[in-house]
Design a protein around this nucleic acid. Structure first.
Lengths: 119, 119
DNA sequence: TATATTTGCAAGCACCTACTTGCGTATCAT
DNA sequence: ATGATACGCAAGTAGGTGCTTGCAAATATA
């Protein structure tokens, strides 16, 4: 059982999703983020570390402050995985949506191989 | 720290994602699923239980077998959350994609309130 | 009926996670 | 220089997670 630290695990925690929601609107420093939650600054600091480790967040030192800004590109991985099952929750205009996804997106959807990725 | 059991956490585990990949192709019984992984049947059984608890899987008793079939409708929640950050990883045709998502999907995207859901 | 198959349940274990409190350090303001 | 501010590091803790092995129950097959 090796330690996983991927995007899927990062967004599994509701606090971390909320943090991403905050910094996505505006880059914020650590204390300002912590102030929005009831848990301690240390707890938030750890969440930030985890988010930074999988690239969803970038922390820039600025004097004595650390500004956290969202880097949500890696969410594309989640989007890709979920999108392959799109037909399960909607059956309208699948063809058109998939056409748009696979044709115009920067990331290549349906790269395959992710299905049996769980070893 | 109450126990969470939501879709985000369910798909955080790579083994569970792989299980979903299997059953999405074809409904399968427990042993057949377990046979595809190196972990014990009990471990898989627990994964199945978790997936069933958050509605991603439906287990139907059939004689002595339990057939697991994918019910991935709840992945729409993940899709909705991720989609709001789509602009972070692609900037092509956002408007059109969002238009299609919000107009023709069965689920109402951007239901709001999920942003600051982390308490 | 005897045996094999499919499966759940329960106990136990190592590790991970989310959290706390206490303390130290760098930076800024006065 | 002095004090306040922003922050990381370290230690400690309760409970969660992923896994195992052993056993029992239900169903199918011989």
């Amino acid at each position: 059982m090796e330690t996983r630290r991927d995007v899927f695990q990062a967004i599994a925690d509701p606090t971390r999703r909320a943090i991403l929601g905050m910094v996505a609107k505006e880059a914020t420093n650590v204390n300002a983020i912590a102030g929005q939650f009831e848990v301690s600054r240390q707890a938030i600091s750890l969440h930030l570390k985890i988010l930074a480790e999988c690239g969803l967040l970038q922390i820039k030192q600025q004097g004595r402050e650390r500004i956290c800004e969202a880097r949500l590109e890696n969410l594309a991985e989640v989007n890709r995985w979920v999108s392959q099952y799109r037909k399960f929750w909607t059956n309208k205009l699948d063809a058109l949506e998939n056409y748009l996804d696979t044709t115009f997106s920067t990331d290549s959807h349906e790269k395959s191989g992710e299905n049996i990725e769980g070893k």
